[in-house]
Write a protein that binds this DNA or RNA. Sequence first.
DNA 1: TGAACCCGTAAGTCGTAGCTTACCGTTCGT
DNA 2: ACGAACGGTAAGCTACGACTTACGGGTTCA
Lengths: 106, 106
Amino acid sequence: MIAEADPWVAMGDPSRRRIVRLLAAGPSSVAELADVLPISRPAVSQHLKVLKAAGLVDVRPQGTRRIYQVDPAGLQALRAELDGFWGQAMANFVELTNRHTKENEA
Amino acid sequence: MIAEADPWVAMGDPSRRRIVRLLAAGPSSVAELADVLPISRPAVSQHLKVLKAAGLVDVRPQGTRRIYQVDPAGLQALRAELDGFWGQAMANFVELTNRHTKENEA
DNA sequence: TGAACCCGTAAGTCGTAGCTTACCGTTCGT
DNA sequence: ACGAACGGTAAGCTACGACTTACGGGTTCA
């Protein structure tokens, strides 16, 4: 498995973000996605492979078709990491503000 | 301005995510970042350029050095878009669940 | 003013991501 | 069992992103 499993890298590609947006609106098959997107069906397939490896989408075989949908857990993981960044940045901000205030008080 | 201004693309690169992580812990100069990271100083400079274009970091010239720090607004924007995906996905989920329940009731 | 630092940019190389066409396995309908 | 959809994979091409080294512009301190 040399495949890319990083959700951030997966979301970095505009086409994949568009796919996620479409799937967030409702599950759909590969052909349905390819019909809307300006890329070929195999390209969509490859993007879905990356998104699946990143844990952002799920597959549900249904007859001859494969229905894809977003995996809330994947988005949640991204949110968690992003909140981590944000929280740390804010904590650092208030600390700097406090220090600055104290310096001005002195 | 051919520069890349997409925050998602900016966060897609591991080195840049690491820089954001470092800056979230506290502001620092380019040399300080390059000292920690396994890449050259110009490489860090280029990454910072992308992050700045994406609105994820801010610069504050201080003497001969340039102090970089995260821009909370940029992270907030990412959070907002991510929450949009999540909310839509969840709404779609409960709708599907309701429909499924109704079908089973009928 | 000149030396020493910090940093951004230019130029060039290398790897790889994203796309295409072609092909093949699988599943349903008749 | 045959043909048709649906979709994943292989092979190959092209473009771009992430590095590197080399250079130049500012700012500080003697």
